[in-house]
C-alpha cells in the first residue's frame, strides 16, 4: 500500500495528464477569461485612472469565476465508477482531495500567469513589489483550488453541481478581498501583512476542512 503523498501525487498527475489530452482549460477557459477581461475596458472606455483602479479587482473576479469552472471540470473526470475504483484500491479520500486540489491549483496558477499580462495590457495597474505579487498569485491559486475542489466534492455528495457557485461565492470573499487589498497596499505603499495572513489562514482552513470532510462526503455521494 502506498502512502498519503504518493497517492495524492498520482491523482494529481492523472488529472493533469487528462488536461493535457483534452486541453479544456487551456483551449477553452483561458480564451474566455481573456475575453471577459476585455469586456470591462470596452464598457468603461479610455478612462485610464478608473481602469487602473478597478483592474486588480476585475482580474481576481475573472480568476474566481473561471477557477470554479476549472474545479468543476476536474471533478467531472471523477464519475461514479472511477470514485468506486479509487475507494476499492484503498486510496485515502483525503489524498484524493489533496491530489485533485493540487491539480486544480496548478491549472489555476497557469490561468493566472497567462492572463496576468493580458490584465496588465488592458488595465495598466502599475503594480509594485513583484515578489509579493508572485506570492499572492500562488496563495490565491491554492485558496481557490482548495475551495473549488471542496465545493465540487460537496455538490457531488448531494448530486447537484448547480450548488457550486452558491457554495463558492461567499467563501471566496475573504480570498478576493485579501488579494485586491494586497494589490492596493503594494501600489500605495500600505501594510499588507494582515491581508497576506488572511490568505494563508484561509488556505490552511480550506485544506484542513477538505481533508477532514473527504471521507464523509465521499460516502454520502453513494
Amino acid at each position: 500500500m502506498t502512502g498519503f503523498w504518493t497517492q495524492a501525487i498520482e491523482v494529481a498527475r492523472k488529472d493533469l495528464r487528462t488536461e493535457m489530452r483534452t486541453g479544456e482549460v487551456f483551449l477553452i477557459t483561458i480564451p474566455f477569461g481573456a475575453v471577459a477581461l476585455m469586456l470591462i475596458p470596452l464598457a468603461v472606455g479610455t478612462d485610464t485612472p478608473l481602469l487602473r483602479s478597478i483592474g486588480p479587482g476585475m482580474y481576481w473576479v475573472v480568476v474566481l469565476l473561471f477557477g470554479v469552472m476549472v474545479a468543476l471540470r476536474q471533478s467531472a473526470v471523477e464519475a461514479g465508477p472511477q470514485q468506486d475504483l479509487l475507494s476499492l484500491l484503498g486510496i485515502d479520500p483525503g489524498a484524493q482531495f489533496t491530489g485533485r486540489a493540487g491539480a486544480t491549483t496548478a491549472l489555476l496558477l497557469a490561468f493566472e500567469v497567462i492572463l496576468g499580462p493580458v490584465a496588465m495590457a488592458l488595465y495598466d495597474p502599475q503594480p509594485r513589489g513583484w515578489p509579493w505579487i508572485a506570492a499572492l498569485v500562488v496563495l490565491v491559486a491554492i485558496g481557490l483550488g482548495l475551495l473549488g475542489t471542496l465545493a465540487a466534492t460537496i455538490a457531488g455528495s448531494i448530486a447537484s453541481s448547480a450548488l457550486v457557485p452558491l457554495l463558492v461565492a461567499p467563501l471566496s470573499v475573504p480570498i478576493l478581498l485579501a488579494a485586491s487589498q494586497t494589490m492596493d497596499g503594494l501600489r500605495f505603499g500600505n501594510t499588507i501583512l494582515g491581508w497576506v495572513l488572511l490568505l494563508v489562514t484561509m488556505d490552511l482552513l480550506l485544506a484542513v476542512a477538505g481533508v477532514l470532510s473527504a471521507r464523509p462526503l465521499q460516502e454520502a455521494s453513494r
Partner: peptide, 11 residues
C-alpha cells in the same frame, strides 16, 4: 496509463 495508474497506487 489507466493500468499504470492503478499499479502505482497499489505500489
Amino acid at each position: 496509463e489507466n493500468t499504470r495508474f492503478v499499479a502505482r497506487l497499489v505500489g
